[in-house]
């Protein structure tokens, strides 16, 4: 049992991104991005398409290597102690990553094995999480037979199987109807409140942000604002987050969408 100090004010952050830059060849995707999020907090990573959200997620999850800067998960450097860092991280990618030919149970137990969780313990966790996600009756259904929203719920259950204290979700509500989006968002917010999980929620949809949330705003690979919603709004001299986001993104506020087109 490892103990991580987390006093919220100078203690070990759930996620610390320090001076991270990344390029695809000559195309700069992230420039000197720094922020940190506390455990048991809901932080929204706001940015338009192409702002660098997915690149940042790929670096945090070590799909890509951090060449410039440092990323730490509960104090564990993703580059130097990737195993320790990744054990504390659950992630839901933007692209669907379920194996469509396998059942829900097979998909989840595969993930459990990738975290060294034995069959018996995995089964208990799977049953608990599926009930939590209202998917208990779909255990043996093929992933292919699920709707988009149901697949997302299974992916969230999968990301939580190894009980990570930090959860990353990359545009988790993309392609879902309003009801599914609201359901998933509520589930994640409940996890923060009841389980004390730190969440980084990447989105470009402004209506997914609540006044009490923390926000990190990216624009063309640069961090342009970070803090409480009220502080970000105040710092831009606007009245609403929509206006603040449109100003920070260099757009007319009418171009900022609540829901997907």
């Amino acid at each position: 049992m490892q103990h991580v100090k987390t006093d919220g004010n100078g203690g070990v952050a759930a996620l610390e991104v320090a001076a991270v830059s990344y390029s695809y060849g000559s195309k700069r995707a992230l420039s000197d991005v720094s922020f940190a999020i506390a455990p048991a907090s809901f932080t929204v990573l706001l940015g338009l398409n192409g702002a660098g959200k997915t690149t940042l997620f790929s670096l945090i999850s070590r799909l890509y290597s951090t060449r410039n800067g440092t990323i730490r998960i509960f104090g564990n450097d993703v580059a130097r102690a990737s195993g320790e860092a990744l054990r504390r991280l659950g992630i839901v990618f933007q692209a669907r990553t379920l194996d469509l030919d396998l059942s829900v149970y097979q998909n989840l137990s595969y993930h459990a094995s990738l975290h060294g969780i034995g069959a018996r313990q995995a089964r208990q966790r799977i049953d608990t999480l599926l009930k939590q996600m209202d998917m208990g009756d779909r255990l043996h259904d093929k992933a292919r037979s699920l709707s988009g929203g149901q697949m997302r719920r299974i992916e969230i259950a999968r990301a939580l199987l190894h009980e990570p204290p930090l959860l990353l979700l990359d545009e988790a509500t993309v392609g879902l109807d309003i009801q599914s989006r609201a359901g998933i968002l509520a589930t994640i917010r409940k996890l923060v409140a009841t389980e004390g999980i730190g969440v980084l929620w990447a989105t470009h949809l402004i209506d997914e942000v609540e006044d009490g949330d923390q926000v990190v705003v990216l624009r063309e690979g640069r961090l342009v604002a970070a803090g409480k919603v009220t502080d970000v709004v105040k710092s831009t001299g606007t009245k609403t987050l929509r206006d603040a986001f449109s100003r920070l993104s260099g757009l007319d506020s009418r171009q900022i969408t609540d829901i997907e087109p």
Binding site: H3, P39, S41, V192
Partner: peptide, 22 residues
């Protein structure tokens, strides 16, 4: 760089259950 604060009141120490892989 400041840490965005926690939303949930909690104790100073959080247990992260992570014994080494055998």
């Amino acid at each position: 760089m400041s840490t965005l604060p926690s939303q949930k009141a909690q104790s100073d120490v959080v247990a992260v259950n992570a014994p080494a892989f055998g």
